[in-house]
Design a protein around this nucleic acid. Structure first.
Length: 605
RNA sequence: GCGCCCCUAGCUCAGCUGGAUAGAGCAUCGGACUUCGAAUCCGAGGGUCGAAGGUUCGAAUCCUUCGGGGCGCACCA
């Protein structure tokens, strides 16, 4: 239990006691107050504003009430000092036992620390990415991909059962254009009006020409609405998803896997049509009186309170719109038994939320169970100036290209994935990201993610040295050894570790992975600072080589080292849990930096 | 015109269910390495929290208005 949680309990007990004694006349149920880390510069471990919150209702002055509560808090075994400060804050110092308890919890629970029991919560479907299969995944798609994945991880950690789903928009004009573009490319013609002309289209055309010329010929022999064209189109979509064999482009699935993202279900929009799901949903809407035929033959969905306008589901030429299949798709998700649907969308689709909510209500499902996570877009800049990009233009920047480039620059295979994930996660979802392509290429190895990873590697290095030089493994937890962990900086870091479970559940509930990123950065900073400071003070965790002169063993406090090894493992463990939730590797060692500056590599004249 | 999001240090961003003296990274300047791995640490300078009103004992945080920016407002997906 973290210190804040501990103080909250103690405070609630104090309030109950005051109430029972008749010294506090108010309804305690539903009382809300804050328990926070102490204000900077205040000598305390935790603080609460409870007296200020309740003062008015209790008919007392804040400081007076604070003193009454403080008096009772002082009786707690876990608490060593209490004082009232400022307008009525109660500042508390905890006894060593409270810190030892955190270390004990962390070590005992290991990888499960901060996690709730599995399958105790909701059944949640998280649908994300769902980029059209008409081009490779671009750097702008990456944000939704990583966000959806980490929210899914957080939800799993907080006890929910999560299904990750990708909705493949393989129906309608855009994919038809892709098919047309590929056929043009196979004939060595330029792309059609509004079509796609990227390198991957050429790769697909060449592959088809070499491997399935029969399908190309069959498609050419009929109109675009024919069976052979449909078959060719399905093959093109498959090639986009799985990649063209031997081609440079790895395909959507593989790029996601390389980013550490696995989907459980891939749902095809075209399949929803083919299996009659869309028609069935329209029938249901009709039966509910929610469809209206317009004068020109088009059909609209009659909206409810959510949206401000009726939307077309079937065009006057008889073709169904994307909205029609989306209603069917969301109905289908509900029918699969989920208690909550989360869609992760770019903010450019925010106007679409209302109509889907309205449609969900119309197909007899509960709109409250449907939730859209909107994230602001990734704007690409080049030398500080914005440039518009689209899959039709030549200057697209793919996830694959960026990760590969970073891998290469840093020198190991995970670097690009880690750097990119961190880059997306380190900003709140409602903050737009400006990415300067030229700058990003220079940043590579000073990405802050390496700072965090370095901390973990350092902790591992201490454990390695303990074993190799001193034959010491991390011992079993004991209160006696934990009591040796008494340095103020060690205590402060333990207090931080105690906050981890709260951070995880808050990040999950608010769908804000950023909170966890900043928590980990703070842990990293605290540890690095401690490490350097104690080495300079000659109080290192393990005896330093420079101190191991004759007779050093007689002066060595072996138990203190053992206690600190417990602490090291505790910090490392929380560190690793946090990184795992972000899908970022917790390396046991960092690749040694190669030539750091260009001038070293410059040849002598 | 209507709707959603944003505006915090030179730059990039935290802090937003109201609390004490608004924080970090980068950049700048000054220090600390025969390292438990310096991809590190310590220190300094740097702020009308876009503006103005309001609510409150207390506002970066909540409300209103205004200014600036982004994104939507399809019989595209």
């Amino acid at each position: 239990m973290g210190l804040e949680e501990q103080l909250r309990r103690n405070t609630q007990e104090a309030l109950a006691l005051l109430s029972a004694r008749g010294e506090l006349d108010l309804e305690l149920a539903g009382v809300r107050f804050n328990v926070d880390p102490p204000k900077r510069g205040v000598d305390a471990d935790a603080a609460t504003n409870v007296a200020m919150v309740l003062a008015k209702r209790a008919g007392k002055k804040p400081r007076e009430l604070a003193e009454q509560i403080a008096e009772l808090l002082r009786e707690s075994e876990q608490i060593s000092a209490v004082d009232v400060a400022g307008p009525g804050f109660i500042n508390v110092r905890f006894a060593p036992a409270a810190f030892e308890q955190i270390l004990s919890d962390v070590l005992e629970q290991g990888r499960g620390y901060g996690h709730k029991a599995a399958a105790t919560g909701e059944r949640i479907l998280v649908e994300f990415v769902s980029a059209n299969p008409t081009g490779p995944l671009l750097i702008s798609h990456g944000r939704g991909a990583v966000l959806g994945d980490v929210v899914a991880r957080l939800l799993e950690a907080t006890g929910h059962r999560v299904t990750r789903e990708y909705y493949v928009n393989d129906y309608g004009n855009q994919v038809r254009l892709l098919g047309h573009s590929v056929r043009c490319a196979a004939k060595d013609e330029g792309p059609p009006e509004g079509g796609y002309g990227g390198y991957y289209v050429k790769e697909m055309g060449e592959w088809l020409l070499a491997n399935r010329p029969d399908m190309l010929a069959a498609a050419d022999a009929e109109t675009e609405a024919g069976e052979a064209s449909a078959a060719l189109l399905r093959l093109c979509v498959t090639l986009m998803l799985d990649g063209v064999p031997g081609a440079q482009d790895r395909g959507i699935r593989r790029v996601l896997t390389d980013l550490g993202i696995e989907f459980d279900v891939w749902t095809s929009e075209e399949g929803l049509h083919r299996w009659g799901r869309v028609q069935k949903t329209l029938d249901l809407l009709k039966a509910r009186g929610r469809l209206r035929t317009e004068d020109d033959g088009a059909v609209s969905f009659v909206t409810g309170d959510e949206d401000d306008k009726d939307r077309i589901v079937q065009k006057r030429d008889g073709v169904m719109t994307y909205f029609a299949s989306d209603i069917a798709y969301h109905e289908d998700k509900f029918r699969r038994g989920f208690t909550r649907l989360i869609d992760v969308w770019g903010a450019d689709h925010h106007g679409y939320v209302a109509r889907v909510k309205s449609a969900i209500e119309a197909v007899d499902q509960e709109p409250e169970k449907f939730e859209v996570m909107l994230f602001q877009l990734v704007n690409l800049l080049r030398d500080g100036k914005s440039f518009k990009m689209g899959k039709r233009l030549g200057n697209l920047i793919t996830i694959q290209e960026v990760t590969e480039e970073i891998d290469e620059a840093v020198g190991h295979a995970h670097a690009g994935r880690d750097a990119l994930r961190y880059f997306y996660l380190a900003r709140r979802v409602d903050t737009p990201i400006d990415l300067d392509v030229e700058l990003a290429k220079k940043q590579k190895s000073d990405n802050p993610v390496f700072y965090i990873q370095y901390g973990h590697a350092r902790l591992c290095a201490i454990q390695r040295r303990a074993k190799e030089k001193f034959g010491l493994e991390t011992p079993r937890y004991s209160d006696a050894l934990a009591a040796k962990v008494s340095h103020p900086l060690e205590r402060a870091l333990l207090a931080q570790l105690g906050r981890f479970p709260g951070i995880v559940s808050e990040a999950a509930e608010t769908r804000e992975p950023t909170k966890l990123v900043f928590f980990l950065r703070d842990i990293a900073q605290a540890f690095q600072s401690y490490y350097t400071q104690l080495r300079n003070d000659g109080d290192a965790i393990l005896p330093l080589a420079r101190d191991m002169t004759d007779g050093w063993e007689d002066k060595w406090d072996r138990d203190k080292t053992l206690g600190r090894l417990l602490w090291v493992e505790g910090v490392r463990s929380v560190y690793s849990c946090g990184l795992e939730l972000l899908g970022i590797q917790a390396p046991e060692q960092m690749a040694r930096e190669t030539a750091t500056e260009g001038d070293e590599a410059a040849p002598e004249e």
